[in-house]
């Protein structure tokens, strides 16, 4: 167990593009949480876009190259064994690239050719382990470790944990999930539930925890996204939640923005607060709201946090 913990105490950190912009609160709270827990994040040197959805849908092999370059920087330029990506999109893409490089000779060929021309060492499958921020806290600290460090318990806070669609899908690129006791589940993920429960929160049974938020529909048909999000927010409230905890910057921004739009456009008003799990854990450890970027969120949860003695 000690070996597992030490493996994740210092990891290469790949924030990705979203965390440098709209998801900055997630970046701030992830770094603050790591610091408060005594964990070390080493930014991936000279990282690039993972290929996001846009590149992947036009040319999946090009996305594989872009993601492989990030892993190559971590492995070959920094000597790191673990890359932590808090964004579901980045995490998903790095895992997909890893899978493709393991199983597809054409992908290996394209990555090899492009890496050589670009002037860096080609990434070889298996050089690094890509993990999500949830894995990082779960493996490096664990629930017992969190319980020991909690200063402001989240006791009495009813939370719906929303994982979004990319954290667990497609199943075959996450071979470590569904692999026995203690592993994450692809059909009913629980790592966020586990961590927030350790911080004192009361998790509600939330049947839409991996449902689509319509994130990618936003540009083509905002009304579809708004209705999907409104439905998720209503379901969270119907489940008794006061807060939706998120672990993806795209989902988080979508929930926040469409919560406002749903009220204006559809007359659907919901009061559930939307906070990153890293913000909630940081607050539980005694960090101030500003330290975890609560002021950077679109939705205003300061009043709620003050009521709960967390601000």
């Amino acid at each position: 167990m000690t070996d597992t913990k030490s493996r994740y105490r210092e990891v290469a950190y790949y924030p990705g593009c979203a965390l440098e912009g709209s998801g900055h609160a997630y970046n701030r709270s992830t770094r603050a949480l790591g610091k408060a827990l005594g964990l070390k994040l080493k930014d991936v040197k000279n990282w690039n876009c993972c290929g996001a959805m846009e590149v992947k849908n036009i040319d999946p092999k090009l996305q594989t190259y872009l993601s492989s370059r990030v892993m190559s920087m971590a492995a070959n330029e920094m000597g790191q064994e673990v890359v932590m990506a808090p964004c579901n999109g980045c995490y998903h893409n790095l895992k997909k690239a890893e899978y493709d490089l393991q199983h597809d000779a054409d992908s290996r060929d394209v990555v090899g050719r492009l890496s050589e021309k670009a002037g860096h060492t080609a990434y070889q499958a298996g050089q690094v382990e890509t993990i999500h921020a949830l894995d990082w806290i779960k493996q490096a600290i664990g629930e017992d470790g969190l319980r020991e460090r909690v200063r402001n318990s989240l006791q009495g806070m009813r939370i719906a944990n929303y994982y979004g669609c990319m954290y667990t899908r497609p199943r075959h690129i996450f071979p470590e999930k569904d692999s026995g006791p203690g592993s994450e589940s692809t059909s009913k993920p629980h790592f966020m539930d586990d961590l927030l429960a350790a911080a004192g929160a009361e998790n509600v049974d939330f049947p839409l925890k991996t449902a689509c938020c319509g994130g990618a529909h936003t540009l083509s048909d905002s009304d579809t996204s708004t209705r999907l999000v409104a439905n998720i927010l209503q379901a969270a409230e119907a489940a008794g939640a006061e807060v939706i905890a998120t672990e993806c910057p795209t989902c988080h921004s979508g929930l926040e923005m469409h919560q406002i739009r749903a009220e204006k456009r559809l007359g659907i008003k919901t009061d559930v607060k939307i906070l990153y799990f890293t913000q909630l854990l940081g607050l539980a450890l005694g960090l101030k709201p500003r330290k975890v970027g609560v002021q950077e969120n679109i939705s205003d949860s300061m009043g709620f946090l003050k009521e709960r003695g967390l601000a």
Binding site: N57, H217, S220, D221, N231
Partner: peptide, 26 residues
């Protein structure tokens, strides 16, 4: 609400599938 989500997801996919390459809808 769950049934409604299924409806919104699938009707949204049917709608955007006509737009060509786009996210998981295509």
């Amino acid at each position: 609400l769950i049934a409604n989500h299924l409806f919104l997801f699938i009707s949204g996919k049917l709608q955007t599938a006509g737009l060509g390459e786009f996210c998981c809808s295509s």
